[in-house]
Simulated scan of single mutants.
Amino acid sequence: MNWVERAAELRQWSKGAVRAPHKPLLLLYALGRFQREDDGALRYGAVEEDLKRLLAEYGPPHRTSPAYPFHHLVSDGVWEVRTDRGAGSPGTGVRELRATGAAGRLVPELRAALRREPSLLGRMAQVLLDANFPPSLHDELCEAVGLVPEPEPDVSERLSVARRQRDPRMRERVLTAYEYRCAFCGYDGRIGAVPVGLEAAHVRWWAFDGPDDVDNGLCLCSLHHKLFDKGVLGVGEGDRVLVSQRFVGHSPAARVQVTELSGRPLVGPQPGAAPVAARHRAWHTAQVFHGDPRPAHAAPSPA
Score class of each variant (00 low, 15 high):
Ala200Trp: 02
Trp205Arg: 04
Arg43Gln: 13
Val107Asp: 02
Asp239Arg: 09
Gly32Ala: 04
Ala282Val: 08
Leu28Thr: 01
Glu152Gln: 14
Ala177Cys: 13
Pro24His: 01
Gly272Met: 10
Trp3Lys: 07
Tyr58Ile: 10
Val145Ile: 06
Asp167Asn: 15
Leu27Lys: 04
Arg19Thr: 08
Leu27Thr: 08
Arg255His: 15
Ala193Met: 10
Arg85Ile: 05
Arg33Asp: 04
Gly263Leu: 09
Gly263Thr: 04
Pro151His: 11
Gly217Lys: 03
Ala296Ile: 00
Asp39Trp: 13
Arg173Glu: 13
Ser89Asp: 03
Gln245Ser: 14
Glu80Val: 00
Asp209Ala: 15
Ala183Arg: 03
Thr259Glu: 07
Pro211Ser: 07
Gly77Leu: 08
Arg158Thr: 03
Ser301Pro: 13
Ala273Gln: 09
Arg255Met: 12
Val155Met: 09
Leu28Arg: 05
Gly210Tyr: 06
Pro21Ser: 11
Asn132Phe: 03
Arg33Tyr: 01
Leu54Val: 06
Gly91Tyr: 06
Ser14Trp: 05
Gly210Pro: 02
Gly291Asn: 11
Thr92Val: 15
Val148Ile: 13
Ala162Leu: 14
Asn216Gly: 07
Lys52Pro: 01
Val267Cys: 11
Glu37Asp: 14
Val235Pro: 08
Arg116Met: 09
Gly197Glu: 00
Leu227Val: 08
Ala113Gly: 11
Tyr180Ala: 04
Leu97Val: 06
Arg115Lys: 15
Gln165Leu: 15
Pro252Asp: 12
Leu28Ser: 08
Glu48Asp: 13
Thr83Lys: 07
Arg190Trp: 00
Leu26Arg: 02
Thr285Asn: 12
Tyr180Glu: 08
Arg264Tyr: 03
Lys230Ile: 00
Cys182Trp: 02
Gly146His: 01
Tyr68Cys: 00
Glu143Ala: 15
Val81Gln: 04
